[in-house]
Amino acid sequence: MKDVIPIQTNNTETIAVSKNSKNIYQQAIDTFSNFCRARSLFVLHYCTGCGAIELPPAMTSRFDMERLGIQPMVTPRQADILLITGYVSIKTLKRVILTYEQMQGPKYVIGICSCTVNGGMYWQSYATAKVLSEYLPVDMYIAGCMPRPEAVLTGLQQLMKKIEKGEANSWENYFKRYDYYLGNQQHLFGDTWHTPTDILEEARHYHLYGAESTGNNTARLIKYTVEHDLTKLDAPLREKDSMTKRGKK
């Protein structure tokens, strides 16, 4: 089945949002919101790779993340940043995607270590996902094998600057270009891949639905969920090409 779905490697630049529609009060509120967002970051660590060992010194007395307003959180619902340290095996990537979809926007993904950038020393492995940003919108890569805590903190500070300027919007891409990300996920996991979170419905609800949200890959997902009766049939919003709700696996 994996041969049927090719991997897609088109550009993943943020789709620009028009800012002209906002008046001065909305802009002021946005600026203040971004100011607060940049000063309070809750981090969820997904530490299955070797880079995890650099995080305890970054959090404890030597470097102390909390002085920058960064603190660890334990569930995806509470977190802002998903910190992925080191290689993600294909089995791990499924869990990472499930975790990511449960987080609340604005949410940011940071890939630490070379393995998340290009596969690193595991680039020949059959069992690892090589480029993380093909499966999730990644805001920041911190390269190195492994990056020292100084590098981790510098990366976090760069992300804070991006957030304060209002440029860290790549989480919106997951909704706007869901077809692309889903296609690459299906490339690895097969065309029966589905998660409990209904991304397309969320995209509609939060006005993030774009031309690239649906396509061949989402059609495959919808076909699968309809065939296996995972759709809620009584949902009034159901259309031919859309799926309103998916049940749990």
Binding site: S33, C36, R37, R39, S40, S61, D64, R67, G69, D80
Partner: peptide
């Protein structure tokens, strides 16, 4: 033996 959060950290957390 850490520095600890900045002065208005609880407020930033809540607003965020």
């Amino acid at each position: 033996r850490r520095v600890g959060p900045p002065f208005l950290q609880p407020l930033w957390d809540i607003i965020k």
